[in-house]
């Protein structure tokens, strides 16, 4: 048994999620290594030793500088085949998910995703995930090696264990088709502005608002109930509301006392950012919206009618 953890980095640091998965892997399998792919990343490799990697394999080169998945599929697959790793673990992200999917097909290796815990059962890796809107918890396994796993963001905290890694350089040869997609530009977003992480109540507007003007309804309800306004990737992508208010995998992770979703479908990308909210109320005109799977109170209806009524009722109740 041996385990490889895919490390994702941004700028001059390894992502916290990757280090969390590495810490967990080292705790359940002492024979854990890591792989780091990018340009000028050799200096980051030693960081990983502190979190339990025995060896950090580094593929360093201009050809793999951009954070695109397919070059990483080539490198990780080759490393897994050469060294015979039994488990290959990824902290879920936009990049890591595509890498994991590609490696799964390249090696015909089983991939379990959205795992929130890992355990060893008699030497075999067992993954834990919730399913069907968190109404059921499943133990999942693999029938062959290597076993690939994508771990839900925030499942494990990084823990330093005082170790140190040996660093081993590996090649960056790529398949022709793996270098066809190229990064044209990367635009940083400033996540400044009002903090949705601090608010006890979040009124969240999604694509179902229909237009940017729909956020006025959100702001009125938030003001009446004493909460802040949050948003989804779909509306931020569409330019309706600022990135700083976005909940989800590529936004902020929140756990307010009350989450009210209006016109939010409940995509997994959004759900991972708000599923620990204490109470979830959702309004959506589509009875098949996934958010109804994990709402305490789900309302199928027209938010344009319901939200103003609710705002008025809340104002009346609070005497304002």
């Amino acid at each position: 048994m041996s385990t490889l953890v895919f490390l994702e980095h941004h700028g001059s640091s390894i992502q916290k999620g990757s280090l969390g998965v590495l810490s967990k892997a080292a705790a359940i399998d002492p024979d854990t290594s890591a792989v780091l792919v990018g340009s000028g990343v050799a200096g980051l490799a030693e960081q990983a030793g502190k979190y339990g990697a025995k060896t950090v394999f580094v593929a360093d080169g201009e050809a793999v500088a951009a954070p695109l998945p397919q070059p990483r599929v080539d490198i990780v697959s080759r490393l897994v085949q050469e060294k015979g790793f039994g488990n290959v673990l990824f902290a879920a992200s936009v990049l890591a998910s595509d890498v994991a999917g590609g490696v799964s097909a390249r090696l015909d290796a089983g991939l379990n995703w959205d795992l929130n815990d890992l355990a060893m059962d008699g030497g075999a890796l067992v993954g834990k995930r919730s399913a069907l809107g968190d109404t059921i918890s499943a133990d999942v396994g693999w029938t062959t090696e290597p076993r690939l796993a994508l771990i839900r963001a925030g499942s494990f905290e990084p823990k330093e264990n005082g170790g140190s890694a040996s660093v081993e350089s590996i090649g960056t040869d790529l398949e022709d088709f793996s270098s066809k997609a190229v990064m044209v530009e990367q635009l940083q977003e400033q996540a400044s502005g009002p903090s949705i992480e601090e608010a006890d109540i979040l009124v969240t507007g999604g694509r179902g608002l229909g237009s940017p003007e729909g956020f006025q309804l959100m702001e009125e309800l938030a003001s009446a109930i004493g909460g802040a306004v949050a948003s989804t990737r779909a509306v931020v992508d569409s330019g309706w509301y600022p990135y700083a208010t976005q909940i989800g995998q590529t936004g902020k992770v929140v756990s307010p006392k009350l989450y009210i979703g209006c016109g939010v479908s409940g995509a997994i990308q959004h759900k991972v950012g708000m599923q620990t909210s204490q109470v979830i109320v959702s309004i959506n005109k589509d009875p098949n919206a996934p958010i109804f799977d994990f709402s305490d109170l789900g309302v199928v209806g027209d938010l344009q009618a319901i939200v103003p009524q609710l705002t008025a009722l809340v104002k009346e109740r609070r005497g304002s």
Binding site: V140, G141, F294, S295, D296, V300, Q309
Partner: peptide, 25 residues
Amino acid sequence: RTTVVSLSPPQGRGDSRKIEDDGSA
């Protein structure tokens, strides 16, 4: 290449409700 080993009983949001708006939502 993957398999479900076992299932645990429902957990979490036990008494969730879904209603259709009839004007009183």
